[in-house]
Lab assay of single mutants.
Amino acid sequence: MSGIALSRLAQERKAWRKDHPFGFVAVPTKNPDGTMNLMNWECAIPGKKGTPWEGGLFKLRMLFKDDYPSSPPKCKFEPPLFHPNVYPSGTVCLSILEEDKDWRPAITIKQILLGIQELLNEPNIQDPAQAEAYTIYCQNRVEYEKRVRAQAKKFAPS
């Protein structure tokens, strides 16, 4: 494992614990031996107030490669969400998460999670990743928002 990646992720964890947006979660997972795995984080993004996503808490896994922060983490909703920019596998399609697009090593975990929260309610229809959600979003916004509200209710924190 890269010392650069681990040191950056340790800084990220410290900064997150000191200050993070209300309702968001970002925690490194534990290895079988109980030690912390900084390369694999369990996160959760709350649906934004005043949107059909409100009330939901959407679980996301963030996986970092050894060359982080040169390369972005892979962000994957578990379980996958109904959304035009979420692949059926759950992987998020967002330009700041793509090395050859808008990724920059200075982007923080907090910025990534806030960017994904923004994307939930403002899909990028130029870059669809899920045919069904994309089609319904474009053709029947009322039905799309109904499905999103049902999903938010399903993923409401207990």
Rank of each mutant, 00 (worst) to 15 (best):
K74G: 15
K110A: 04
E98N: 15
L119E: 05
K30E: 07
K153D: 15
L113R: 01
Q130A: 12
P84I: 14
K146T: 13
A129R: 02
K59W: 14
P72Y: 00
H83S: 02
K146W: 03
Q139N: 11
E42M: 07
T29F: 15
L120N: 00
V148H: 01
L57F: 08
Q130S: 08
P73F: 03
D19R: 04
G34V: 05
T135Y: 08
Q126F: 09
A15P: 01
D102Q: 01
K110L: 05
K76S: 15
G34H: 14
D100V: 15
V25E: 02
P80S: 10
P128L: 00
P128F: 01
I116C: 15
A106N: 02
Q111V: 14
T91D: 06
P157M: 07
C138D: 09
P72F: 00
E12I: 01
P105C: 12
A10P: 04
K154L: 12
Q139G: 07
F77Y: 03
S95A: 04
E145P: 05
I125Q: 06
E42K: 12
Y137S: 03
S89I: 14
L113T: 11
V86I: 08
I4S: 04
W41N: 07
N121H: 09
Y87W: 06
Y68F: 09
R147A: 10
W103A: 01
R61Q: 12
L6T: 10
R104S: 10
W103V: 00
P128S: 13
G115P: 04
G23Y: 09
L60W: 04
L94M: 04
C93R: 02
S71M: 06
G47A: 04
V25R: 13
L113N: 05
I136L: 10
P69Q: 01
N121P: 06
S2F: 14
K101F: 11
E98T: 08
N124E: 02
K48A: 11
D67K: 07
C138G: 08
G55V: 07
P73T: 10
R17I: 01
A15Q: 14
E42D: 12
L60V: 09
P46W: 02
A152H: 02
S7F: 03
V142M: 13
D66R: 03
K48I: 07
V86N: 00
K153I: 15
A133D: 03
G90F: 02
L120M: 11
K101N: 15
E132N: 08
E98M: 13
I45G: 03
Q111A: 14
F58R: 04
Y87G: 03
S71E: 15
F58V: 08
F64E: 05
K101I: 08
K49S: 04
P157D: 10
D66H: 12
E98R: 07
E145T: 13
F82T: 04
P21W: 04
P84Y: 03
N40G: 04
K153C: 09
A150M: 09
F82Q: 02
E78M: 14
K59P: 09
S7V: 11
K154P: 01
Q151L: 07
P128E: 03
I96D: 11
R104G: 03
R104E: 05
E143H: 10
P157Q: 13
D102F: 08
E122W: 08
A106M: 00
V148S: 03
T35Q: 04
V25S: 08
W41S: 03
R61M: 10
S158V: 11
S158Y: 02
E99V: 11
L57E: 12
K110W: 04
F24L: 04
G90I: 02
S70Q: 07
Y137P: 00
Y134W: 07
E54P: 01
L114M: 13
M36C: 07
D66Y: 08
R13E: 03
K48E: 08
I45Q: 03
Q151C: 07
H20P: 00
K76Q: 14
R147L: 14
N124M: 04
K154S: 14
K76G: 13
C43E: 07
L119C: 05
V92S: 08
E145Q: 11
C43I: 02
E78V: 15
D102I: 06
G90W: 01
M1I: 06
L57A: 06
L114W: 13
L114T: 13
G34F: 04
E143D: 11
E12M: 05
G56Q: 03
K65S: 13
L6K: 12
K65N: 15
F22C: 01
H83V: 03
V25F: 11
P46E: 06
T135A: 12
W103S: 01
T108K: 14
L63H: 12
E118W: 08
I109H: 04
E99Y: 14
L60N: 03
R104I: 01
T35K: 01
R141L: 10
K30I: 10
I125C: 11
E99K: 11
G47R: 01
Y137T: 09
P128H: 02
A44C: 04
L38F: 10
I136V: 10
E42W: 08
L120Q: 04
P79L: 12
C43Q: 03
E143Q: 11
R17C: 00
K74I: 15
N124P: 03
N140K: 07
D33L: 04
P123S: 02
G90M: 10
T91S: 15
D127K: 00
S2R: 05
E54C: 03
